[in-house]
């Protein structure tokens, strides 16, 4: 039974993440008065890409060739370490806030290197922008998870989701501040509006898409899949750490099913929020982004001071 639970924990994120992207796209389409593609379209896209032939630049080295595998593996690794809809699994090995933050940084590192590797002008600028953003987002990211770690008294993610931080009444304000900044970081790390437009290929503005411009076929599929994994990881972190209601605290079928149902509901709400936000605000100018990221950081500093 335990093995089964672990397998679910490992494969849940990669299996569900394209659906999450599909839902966001569908909601955005509805908001724009379009019919929109089916919510299962991202699966078709991935399948199509996996079956395509591939072109690799002659300037590229093994870094370019192996980076997609690293980037994808990182998201699987982090996906299995974060609380999804069950918090009773006990993982004291990898489920630490700093481990997942720095593992995600490992993915970013290779993504940025692969952008530089082909020697195109776009890839280089994409990498430069991505590293600028992720460097400035690092403080907010660590601090937002740190705030809730202090509230819960542990930095183990599964243990935090077990404690349920919003139940601590007088710390409500801290949790709210931490959540606001976490949401800003979620948008930044997943290159969503107002940081980046995930569906643009306009050279002046793109960040994430610029880095992966040279990829095709299987490798592109892996990178696309990894970025949707990353989105679902952040949504899981947001929903399980900040709103841990309904999360399965014990091993029983009813608890698991209830947890799964509530989790899907929470993910849907997150998707709705992201889609509404993307449809209602404009992308910010690149040099305005640091302000937003530093706001996320400052909010957390206030939140931590309020805790003690």
């Amino acid at each position: 039974m335990n093995i089964l639970i672990w397998i679910i924990q490992i494969v849940f994120i990669p299996i569900m993440s394209p659906l999450c992207v599909g839902i966001i796209r569908k909601i955005k389409a509805k908001l724009q008065n379009r019919k929109g593609a089916s919510i299962f379209q991202p699966y078709n896209d991935l399948w199509k890409l996996f079956n395509k032939d591939e072109v690799i630049s002659k300037d590229a080295s093994w870094v370019f060739r192996y980076a997609p595998f690293v980037i994808f593996s990182v998201t699987i690794f982090v996906g299995m370490s974060v609380p999804i809809f069950m918090s009773f699994v006990n993982n004291t090995f990898t489920s630490d806030i700093l481990v997942i933050i720095y593992m995600l940084a490992l993915g970013t590192f290779f993504l940025a290197l692969s952008g530089l590797d082909t020697g195109g002008a776009f890839g280089g600028f994409g990498s430069s922008r991505e590293m600028t953003m992720s460097a400035l987002a690092e403080g907010g990211f660590i601090f937002s998870l740190l705030t809730i770690s202090f509230i819960a008294g542990t930095t183990n993610l599964l243990a935090i989701s077990n404690v349920g931080i919003l139940q601590h009444g007088h710390l409500l304000l801290s949790s709210i501040l931490a959540f606001i900044s976490f949401f800003i970081i979620l948008l930044a790390e997943n290159t969503r509006y107002p940081f980046d437009n995930p569906s643009t290929h306009l050279e002046l503005t793109m960040i994430h898409e610029a880095m992966i411009l040279e990829y095709s076929g299987k490798r592109l599929a892996l990178i696309e899949w990894a970025s949707s994994n990353k989105l679902l990881i952040f949504i899981s972190l947001g929903s399980s750490l900040f709103f841990p209601w309904g999360i399965a605290g014990a091993l029983s079928l009813s608890a698991l099913l209830f947890g799964l149902f509530i989790f899907c509901l929470k993910v849907f709400i997150f998707c709705l929020a992201i889609a509404v936000l993307e449809s209602s605000i404009a992308k910010l100018r690149f040099f305005k982004l640091p302000d937003l990221l530093l706001i996320a950081f400052i909010l957390n500093v206030i939140a931590i001071i309020l805790i003690f």
């Binding site: 530089l116 280089g124 590293m131 992720s134």
Partner: peptide, 29 residues
């Protein structure tokens, strides 16, 4: 708190710096 903040930003900036160092030295043409 100041120390944690600077250590956090240091980590992020070091990452950017080594993407630059490795990329500019070894990658591309």
């Amino acid at each position: 708190i100041f120390a944690v903040g600077s250590l956090a930003f240091t980590g992020g900036l070091a990452l950017a710096c080594f993407v630059k160092a490795f990329g500019a030295t070894f990658l591309a043409r």
